[in-house]
Simulated assay, not measured.
Amino acid sequence: MQLRITSLDIIRGLAICAVLFVNMQYMTPVPSDTHNFTNVDKVIESIYSIVIRGKFISVFTILFGIGIGIFIDNAKFKERPPYKLMFRRLIFLFVVGIPCMILGMPFLQYAFVGFFVMFATKIKKPWVILAISFIPLIFSLINLIIHNGNTPSMTLTLFFLMLFGLYLSESKIIYNLKRHYYFLYTTLLIACIPVIICLTLYYTGTISGKLAHGLAEPFQAIGYLMILFLVFQSSFMKKVFTPFEKIGKMAFTNFILQGLLIIITLRIFGYLTPKVGIFVSIIIIVINVLLSHYWLKHFKQGPLEKLWRKWTYKNVTQSKTQSAQHTVKI
């Protein structure tokens, strides 16, 4: 029997759905003026900027780092070549990521950063991985301050977030969150401090909005993740958000499907105001839920996930001396 961490699937599904709302506006052709924006549209734009934009894709990035750790642990348990398989997995993501750049998806960057991050699993002490993760974070924050938030160091931030995710995996925290409530609450508290400081500096006019958002973004994402981990310790909450679990299990397929549906929508209707964009995004999410539920009812994996797995494990067999009983699926 193969185990699966349900909360990871739910959070992954929620993250890509939250990103959809931002992508709907990001990919929309900007009109020459926005005089037709209502007050509601302006409020929606502000909420996107403060609550969603950049934050949930960062949550997804942390989950990607967790996934690297789980994948390599599984490969080692099955006596398969972990780094060879991970390299093949990332090559597939790199190739798919090239055309997906048109859709604004960061798969190409994930593959590049993931290639270096996977070797951090060779570090025996997880706290060292956590310590190393702060090096790119510090350089990223310094770069933001120097350029007043105008040139964010996306690659450096990706390194930090993936390494943090890898730490959660390698420290085994992710496998038993109920035993690590102290870590979750402490991390949430620590993450809130820089976010509060940045918001305070912004609203007092000390720093620009771009700089405030750039500095707070990775910490805000970590805070979101800790909150979601705590929320989904409840069986009731897991049941309520079951539809997002299906989306999360087919995250790769759904992510690309969302991008294609956005392009089709914009080709037909052109510019969408933020208010209209919300309704269209909800319709796309419903489509994701229905298709994911139907597909997983008949198949074990999403179509792109199956193709990804087939490429990764081509001509690689599991050791006959090992059982997959305790394997954690990602």
Rank of each mutant, 00 (worst) to 15 (best):
Q2E: 13
T6M: 03
D9M: 03
D9T: 06
I11P: 02
R12L: 07
C17S: 15
C17I: 04
A18L: 13
A18M: 15
V19R: 05
Q25C: 12
T28A: 15
T28Y: 01
V30Y: 08
D33Y: 08
N36M: 13
N39A: 09
D41M: 07
E45L: 15
Y48G: 11
I50Y: 13
K55R: 15
K55E: 10
S58D: 12
V59E: 06
F60A: 12
T61H: 05
G65T: 09
G67Q: 04
I70N: 04
F71S: 14
I72M: 12
N74M: 14
N74D: 10
R80F: 03
P82E: 09
M86D: 05
I91C: 14
L93N: 04
V95N: 11
I98D: 09
I102H: 11
G104M: 10
Y110R: 03
V113H: 02
M118C: 11
F119A: 07
F119L: 13
F119M: 06
T121E: 09
I123S: 07
K125G: 00
V128R: 09
L130F: 15
L137D: 00
I138S: 12
N143P: 01
L144P: 00
I146R: 12
I146A: 06
T151Q: 12
T155F: 08
L156K: 01
L161F: 05
F164E: 01
L177E: 04
K178P: 01
Y181H: 10
Y181K: 13
L184G: 00
L188E: 04
C192V: 11
I196M: 12
C198R: 02
L201R: 06
Y202K: 12
G205K: 02
G214V: 04
G214Q: 04
E217T: 14
E217L: 13
I222C: 11
L225C: 08
F229V: 01
S234I: 00
M237T: 06
K238L: 11
K239Y: 02
E245G: 11
I247C: 02
M250K: 06
F255Q: 05
I256F: 06
L257G: 08
L261I: 15
I262Q: 07
I263N: 03
I264R: 05
K275R: 10
V276S: 06
I282F: 14
I284L: 05
V286A: 14
V286P: 00
I287L: 11
N288D: 13
N288G: 00
W295K: 09
H298D: 08
P303N: 10
E305Q: 10
R309D: 07
K310T: 15
Y313R: 03
Q325F: 09
Q325C: 01
K329C: 07
I330A: 11
